[in-house]
Amino acid sequence: MAVLTLTQLEQAVRAGWGVDTCAPEDVPDWHAGNPARGQCGVTALVVHDLLGGDLMCGEVRVDGVRTDHHWWNRLSGGLEVDLTREQFGPEEIVTAGAVVVRPPTINRLLDEYELLRSRVLAVLRDSAPDPGGPV
């Protein structure tokens, strides 16, 4: 089995983002110049599927008022991986995160999650070395 690097995973995730994988409340703010906008929840779930670890959640605050939640991952060795951090403007402050237990079923953003997951897996499958190829 091929080893998956964080760089490969990040490239696959970024290739999978689109307005159709964005959280519905963030669609008005999503654009090609900020493709990470609204992708944190589904991205964190896909990374969790592939690498395990913990799901992390913090609050997004503007002028001290909570406006949203932000999701990312903490791997088993303690490394925090946040592939969508750049979505926020300078006025949006993300608080420290807390570990959140993954629910047994995904009710919110299920279609967006499944679409992103299928795209990421396709990119990873297509970029895997040919096992019968040269050594």
Rank of each mutant, 00 (worst) to 15 (best):
D126Q: 03
M1P: 06
V94P: 02
L55Q: 02
L124A: 13
W30K: 01
V13E: 07
A15H: 15
R85P: 03
L83E: 04
V62T: 09
T7G: 15
R125M: 13
A12V: 11
A12F: 11
Q8R: 15
R61C: 13
A23W: 05
R108L: 12
H31S: 14
D111K: 14
S118D: 15
E86A: 15
F88R: 01
W71D: 01
P24A: 12
C57F: 00
W71Q: 02
L109N: 08
V100L: 01
V27S: 01
E114W: 12
L45G: 13
T84A: 05
Q11I: 13
V99A: 07
P103S: 12
Q11F: 13
G97F: 07
A36T: 14
A2G: 04
G52E: 12
A128Y: 10
D29N: 10
V42D: 00
T84C: 05
V135Y: 09
G52I: 03
P131H: 11
T84I: 00
Q11A: 15
R102T: 07
D26G: 01
L116Y: 13
G52Q: 08
L50P: 02
P90F: 05
T67C: 11
E86F: 11
S118F: 09
D29K: 04
H70D: 08
V100D: 00
R117I: 06
R119E: 02
N34P: 02
L83V: 00
R61W: 02
P90L: 04
T67A: 10
L4G: 05
A122P: 11
P129N: 10
T5K: 02
V100F: 00
V123I: 14
L6W: 07
V27A: 04
T5C: 03
E92L: 00
T67V: 13
R102A: 12
V27G: 06
P129M: 10
G97T: 11
Y113T: 03
L116A: 14
L50D: 08
H70T: 05
L121A: 08
V81G: 11
A44F: 08
L110V: 12
A44M: 10
E80Y: 03
V120I: 12
H69F: 08
D130S: 11
H69Y: 03
V62C: 06
V46S: 05
L45A: 11
P104H: 04
S127N: 07
L110W: 05
R117Y: 09
E91M: 09
R85C: 05
E80F: 02
P35V: 14
R85M: 07
D54C: 08
V13P: 08
V135I: 03
P134R: 08
L75K: 02
W72I: 14
G18L: 07
A96N: 09
G77I: 03
V135T: 03
S118C: 15
E112P: 03
D126V: 02
V3K: 03
D54N: 07
A36E: 15
R108I: 11
L51R: 15
A12I: 09
D111Y: 10
G16H: 03
R119C: 07
E114F: 13
A122K: 14
V94S: 01
H69I: 06
P24C: 09
H31W: 13
A122S: 15
G38F: 01
T105Y: 12
I106G: 00
V100W: 00
L45C: 12
P129S: 09
D130F: 10
R37G: 03
